[in-house]
Simulated assay, not measured.
Amino acid sequence: MTHIDYLDYYLLTHITYSKQTVKAYRSDLRQMKKNYVEWSVKSLQSYFDYLIQQCKPATAMRRYHALMALGNELVRAKRIKTNPMKQVRPIVHQYVQQREHHPLEETIQTIQKIDHPTYRLFFELISQTGLRFMEARLVSIEDIQFDGLTLLVRHGKGRRLRTVPLGEGLVNRLRIFLRERTTGLVFQSVRGQAINEQSARYALRKQSMIMHGRPLHPHDLRVAFATHLYQIAGCTLVEIQRLLGHGSSRTTEGYILSQETRLRQIMNTLSASAG
C-alpha cells in the first residue's frame, strides 16, 4: 500500500473530519498523485513552487496545510520518520480579508430562531466557544465540567486536547437539555448516534436565508467568534489561538476579519477625492 493509498483509507475512516474536509483532502491527494509528487522535501517544494505560479493563493495555501496534516499522519503511523512538509517553505499571502463578515451578534440572533432544539443548542455551543463543527458533534457529556464551567475538547486537529471555558447561561441550558442523561454524546439523533451533519448545516443555512437573505455556515461561527474576541473583547492572538485549537498563531490571524466595510469607505473616499 502506497502512502497515498494509506492516507485515502485513513480519511475515509477518520471520524473527526467533516465530509467537506475529507472530500477536499482526497482531492489534494489525487492532485499529488497526478503530478507524481513524492513525500520528499525536494519533490514537495517543486510542487508548491508550481502551485504558487499556477493556482489561486487560497488553493495553494489550503493544499499546503492539508499536506502538512497528512504528512503528520504518516509520521504518526510510522510510515515515514519525519514530515518533509515541515521543511517546505511556508506559503504566505498578505492581503486584507474581503470575505463577507457575519457579526457575532447577528449569528447568535439567527441561531436563537432555529426551531430544532438540538441544532439550536449545538450551534449556540459553537458560537460561544469557537469549536469546529466535528469537535462539537463529538462532545461527550463526560467532557463537560458543569461546576468548573469548562469543556474538554478531545477531538481537535493534530490530536491536540484543549480545555475551553463555558458561560454560566450556556451551562444551564446544557443541564436542562440533557435532563437525566449523564453519559454519551451531548447531541444525539433519535437512535443515539451523532447528529446528522447535513441536516444540522441545512438548519443553520435555512434560518440565515430567512432572516438575512444570505447563507451562514458553521465555519462562519468560528470566524465570527474569533473576530469578536479580537476586535470587541480585546483578547490577544495567543488567547484566541488556544481557544480555537490552532497549532500556529498564523492560522489564527486568518480568522480575524478586518473591518472591511470601514476600509472600503476609506478607499472610496480617497478615490473620490482623487477624481
Rank of each mutant, 00 (worst) to 15 (best):
Q109V: 13
T118C: 09
H14Q: 11
E253N: 10
V96Y: 05
P218G: 07
A200S: 15
H14M: 09
M32C: 15
L74E: 00
Y25G: 04
D28I: 06
Q265L: 12
D115I: 08
G158R: 09
I141D: 10
R79A: 02
V238P: 06
A200M: 07
F187K: 06
W39N: 01
M209P: 02
L151M: 09
G71P: 00
Q241I: 06
K56R: 13
A226G: 06
D8F: 14
R201N: 05
S248E: 09
A66F: 02
Q128G: 00
R201G: 00
L125V: 14
E253A: 12
G234H: 12
G71V: 00
V153E: 00
G158S: 10
K157N: 06
L152A: 14
I15M: 09
E168C: 13
D147N: 09
I144N: 07
R62Q: 08
V41W: 04
G130S: 04
Q145D: 15
G158Y: 07
R160H: 12
K19S: 15
V37I: 14
D8I: 14
F146E: 05
Y95P: 01
K19G: 15
P215E: 05
R181F: 11
G156A: 07
R89K: 04
N196D: 12
G247R: 05
M61N: 07
L44G: 02
T251F: 08
G213H: 03
T110F: 03
H155A: 00
